[in-house]
């Protein structure tokens, strides 16, 4: 490696570090009283999902999430307290539909924007097809085992 290449590598590293510090500073300034939420980007297929919270300042604890089926939050379905100082929470038991989630601290909305999560369960025919196939295979195994056992007992 030539000395120019080494210099260029160091320069790039320094530039990246500077950029990172700048981004962090601006994020910190922004995050004093707001929280950034992120949830699953694709459709949720089993009714449970994880919501991550970024840039939570200690002043915003205790923190809760509100879940609603409308973007205006007129009907709040659930209020979910965030445990300890964890930065994520697992929500569960949702039926198919669109859900909106925002963060709340002492009844004040503190998330920059509400996130939308779409739950779309697997079609029931697909589930039942797999169930029946599994049941048939299991039955076959059970019969094989019983036949084998009886044969072994006979020969005993």
């Amino acid at each position: 490696m030539t000395s120019f290449q080494v210099w260029l590598k160091c320069y790039n590293k320094a530039l990246l570090a500077l950029l990172f510090i700048l981004i962090s500073c601006s994020a910190m300034a922004q995050s004093e009283d707001t929280v950034v939420l992120s949830g699953p980007t694709e459709e949720v297929r089993a009714g449970y999902f994880v919501v991550e919270l970024q840039q939570i300042s200690p002043a915003l604890r205790p923190l809760s999430l509100q879940v609603s089926d409308t973007n205006s939050f007129t009907n709040v379905l659930q209020t979910v307290p965030i445990m300890g100082d964890f930065n994520q929470v697992t929500l569960t038991g949702f039926e198919s539909g669109d859900y909106y989630i925002r963060a709340v601290h002492q009844q004040r909305v503190v998330s920059q924007a509400a996130i939308k999560v779409t739950v779309e369960h697997y079609p029931i025919w697909q589930a039942l097809t797999l169930f029946v196939l599994g049941a048939l295979l299991f039955l076959l195994l059970l019969l094989t085992l019983i036949m084998g056992h009886k044969k072994a007992v006979r020969h005993d």
């Binding site: 297929r45 089993a46 009714g47 379905l77 659930q78 569960t92 038991g93 949702f94 039926e95 369960h121 697997y122 079609p123 029931i124 697909q126 589930a127 039942l128 797999l130 169930f131 196939l133 599994g134 049941a135 295979l137 299991f138």
Partner: peptide, 19 residues
């Protein structure tokens, strides 16, 4: 609040059973 958890025809759960 979490009706799916009591649903006996919960598709993902039905699929998971024999597996």
């Amino acid at each position: 609040a979490h009706p799916q958890l009591l649903d006996l025809l919960f598709p993902a759960a039905v699929m998971f059973l024999f597996n």
